[in-house]
């Protein structure tokens, strides 16, 4: 309705030209919305509905009851724990790197290359990243061989397919992601704030605990949540490292999807996916609330 009035209002300016009426304008967005409906909204709806639906279409709570079984709860706990841990490591290390990067001259070549390098490692690792780590600290890895003379330091051959190994590889993409999402926040710290602190007799410690810290805190927590959701959703890296059992939710979804035709697996994959949606939705809601707070200092 409003679209129609705005269009006619605008058209008064150059009335000589026959212009598309509002309804036709709205029709122009149909391809976009139809496409995203089929490939984005429909799959999401199918997950939510499918979590309560048996193969014959009847209502079932089988998936949900399996989701709440001790084994699945364990898997969720492991996933949540590893996401929190790698999120924390990523937040701290990435935060320090982001701050260091913000000190380097803006627009310099080194800084640009560094940011580009970070965005590649943050987003496009997956399977190849796992190979890189196998080549580094796997049985025949470069670092493993270099450390061979010092048995105490040599990584255990099974380390990479253990949870701690997976956590280490996750950090490799968590840290650069942190740098990318946190860089704008540290760039927003104005040198005047530091100077004002110093003029008023404050030390570095005062500056960080009383000025910069409180300003950065919402973005810091928000970035942690993004990292958390990122690790929680990661699949390729874990799949390439862990081949034996499903210790993380995405791996369990894979095996559930694969064994979908087994009796008793009705709606399980969908229920697991629904569980993930709920976790990510909570994380994202917190994130949105924090970003609202962080925006106060952005202006």
């Amino acid at each position: 309705m409003t679209a129609v009035t705005t269009t006619t209002g605008r058209d008064a300016v150059h009335a000589s030209r026959p212009v598309l009426p509002g309804a036709v304008n709205a029709l122009g967005t149909v391809p976009f919305f139809a496409y995203t409906a089929v490939f984005l909204v429909l799959p999401t709806v199918l997950v939510v509905v499918g979590a309560f639906q048996a193969r014959n279409g009847a209502f079932t709570l089988n998936g949900i009851s399996q989701l709440l079984s001790p084994r699945t709860v364990d898997i969720f706990t492991t996933s949540l724990w590893i996401s929190a841990l790698t999120g924390l490591v990523g937040t701290v290390a990435g935060g320090v790197i982001a701050y260091a990067l913000s000190l380097s001259p803006e627009g310099s070549l080194g800084r640009r290359v560094m940011v580009a390098l970070m965005s590649v490692t943050a987003q496009f690792g997956g399977v190849m990243l796992s190979f890189a780590f196998i080549a580094t600290i796997g049985i025949n890895g470069l670092v493993t061989r270099l450390l061979a003379p010092f048995p105490a330091l040599t990584p255990d051959p099974g380390f990479l397919s253990s949870l701690s190994g997976v956590a280490l590889v996750y950090c490799y993409f968590q840290i650069p992601l942190m740098v990318i999402v946190f860089l704008p926040a540290v760039e927003g710290l104005r040198p005047q704030w530091r100077e004002a602190t110093e003029n008023l007799g404050g030390t570095s410690w005062t500056y960080w605990t009383r000025v910069a810290g409180p300003i950065l805190l919402p973005s810091l927590l928000g970035s942690f949540l993004l990292l958390f959701a990122n690790a929680f959703s990661a699949f390729a890296t874990a799949a390439a490292l862990i081949s034996q059992q499903s210790v993380l939710v995405p791996l369990e979804i894979e095996s559930a999807l694969r064994n979908e035709n087994d009796l008793g697996m009705d709606a399980y994959a969908q229920a697991l996916a629904l569980g993930m949606i709920l976790v990510v939705a909570i994380v994202m809601a917190l994130y949105a609330a924090l970003m609202k707070r962080a925006a106060r200092w952005a202006a």
């Binding site: 984005l40 429909l42 999401t44 993930m276 994202m284």
Partner: peptide, 18 residues
Amino acid sequence: LLPLTIPAVVLVVGLAPV
């Protein structure tokens, strides 16, 4: 921006029937 918040492993469960 929605795809950033829906994990790919979740989306693929719904994409399988599609």
